[in-house]
């Protein structure tokens, strides 16, 4: 058999090309992207609202104000109640599971697309990079909106419980009172919510994307959702 020119190695694409493809994909799949992003938004909104609510509660307690409606009877004078810890842990779990689930579904329904891209010459790394960019953007925007909604929810709840006093003692910044519990402050909570949402979205999508990219294209294209 004749030996033709030896096979060249596939080139890496410039980053801007990946960025363009991933944004195009987000734009054209706008409806689906919104649903996936909404999954992230809801998870983070729940987490941030519970957390911020707790921060507000602590700050107001330290200020010596009492809730106008005494909803947290079991709250100790010095710190977070077990119920609050329980709520934060629960909301964290809901958030992790919710985001992982929406990202997993969003990638799994695109296995065929991944197989096709590999048929056309895409490297595994390129496929993963596309999903990383898409999910990173979805994660950040979804989490930011979620964190703002969550904060707004907690503020409204705080207004109901503490009235306008809330704004005088609003725990915006981190604080370490001498005889109270250390607080993160609402800004840090929002920031943590955004980072968490983004990390979860990126892990939740790039892990299945990496798995799909590793499959031979025939197998990826055979996969049915």
């Amino acid at each position: 058999m004749q030996q033709r020119t030896p096979l060249e190695e596939q080139i890496d694409l410039p980053f801007v090309e990946s960025l363009r493809i991933s944004f195009q994909s987000l734009k054209i799949r706008f409806g689906r992207s919104i649903i996936t992003t909404a999954g992230i938004t809801l998870g983070i909104a729940f987490l941030v609202s519970v957390w911020t609510n707790n921060e507000i509660g602590l700050a107001l307690q330290e200020s010596g104000r009492q809730s106008t409606i005494n909803t947290f009877e079991e709250t100790t004078q010095t710190g977070i109640s077990t119920k609050d810890i329980w709520l934060i842990i629960m909301s964290l779990i809901v958030c992790v599971v919710g985001i992982a689930n929406s990202m997993l579904m969003a990638v799994t329904e695109r296995f065929r697309e991944i197989g096709t891209m590999k048929c056309l010459g895409a490297l595994d790394g390129f496929v993963v990079r596309l999903f990383l960019l898409e999910s990173g953007f979805q994660g950040f925007s979804g989490a930011l909106i979620g964190a703002l909604i969550g904060t707004l929810g907690a503020v409204l709840l705080g207004l109901k419980d503490y009235g306008l006093d809330l704004f005088f003692y609003f725990p915006l910044l981190p604080a370490q009172p001498e005889d109270g519990t250390a607080r993160l402050g609402v800004i840090v909570v929002i920031l943590l919510g955004c980072i968490l949402g983004m990390i979860l979205a990126v892990i939740g999508s790039s892990f299945p994307a990496w798995r799909a990219a590793k499959l031979p294209p025939a197998e990826a294209m055979r996969t049915e959702v």
């Binding site: 096979l7 190695e9 596939q10 590999k118 490297l123």
Partner: peptide, 13 residues
Amino acid sequence: LSQRQIAAFRCHR
């Protein structure tokens, strides 16, 4: 073939 060569094969050949 390496992974990169296979990708190039699918892409060009």
